[in-house]
Design a protein around this nucleic acid. Structure first.
Lengths: 115, 115
DNA sequence: GACTAATACGCACATAGGTGCGTATAGTCG
DNA sequence: CGACTATACGCACCTATGTGCGTATTAGTC
């Protein structure tokens, strides 16, 4: 895997954008741990290890496909769990996703067969 | 271990108060995870598992021997780690510790032999 | 077509706090 | 003295993010 050509998305990145764009309208944002579970359940999907996921999220934020902020500490405290980092797909992220899907003629990103 | 008589401290509670009263003057407060490492290194000490430690800390706070507050989120964020719960030994905790040490004629709480 | 270098991944582990479950223990009561 | 029962503990696991290290892959270059 040498020098990446900009504009090309890896399977895990496609999966993140796909899941993100599904969750975001309902929840407002999404976070790594839940994403890991979601992607792991759709077996056959691109999810691999948490390590790879968090690295991909960071990579995509640097690239401008995602933006993130830390959850309000009060929320985490109220639910008695560690703070989450909340991600949103940016306009650039959505555009990159659509472009990638368009260029992939066969099947959807989630691996579902075409009806 | 039936109904505890108030005023009697368990070994782990003695160890927590001892370590806490050592660290507190220098650091201002102490937290569970570091305490676990400290107590584990002094082998022969009363440290056991993290589970037992966090339960003891909670128990002691309820009993008024300790008081705690969550670390400022900015501090944790700046150091890139989860938030700590910062504990301090209360006046009642210090008194209980001294009383317990006084009533234990043999050796110190940390297990060091008397010189 | 072979080689090299950049990159992403898997695995294990770190950080920090915490819980659920089964077992061991130790006061107290009969 | 034995039985009962409250309590603490050990183990395993959870939540959430993240890194270090060695390996696999692969797109360009020669």
């Amino acid at each position: 895997m040498p020098r990446r050509r900009p504009g090309v998305l890896l399977p895990i990145e496609l999966a993140i954008l796909d899941a993100g764009l599904t969750i975001q309208p309902r929840e407002g944002s999404f976070f790594g741990f839940a994403l890991a579970r979601t992607l792991a359940e759709r077996d056959g999907s691109a999810l691999v290890s948490q390590g790879a996921l968090y690295r991909a999220l960071n990579r995509m934020e640097v690239a401008g496909l995602l933006e993130s902020e830390w959850e309000a500490p009060e929320t985490a405290e109220a639910e008695g769990r560690p703070r989450r980092r909340l991600y949103r797909v940016t306009g650039a992220g959505e555009a990159a996703f659509r472009a990638a899907v368009r260029s992939e003629q066969r099947g959807t990103v989630t691996g579902e067969a075409l009806a």
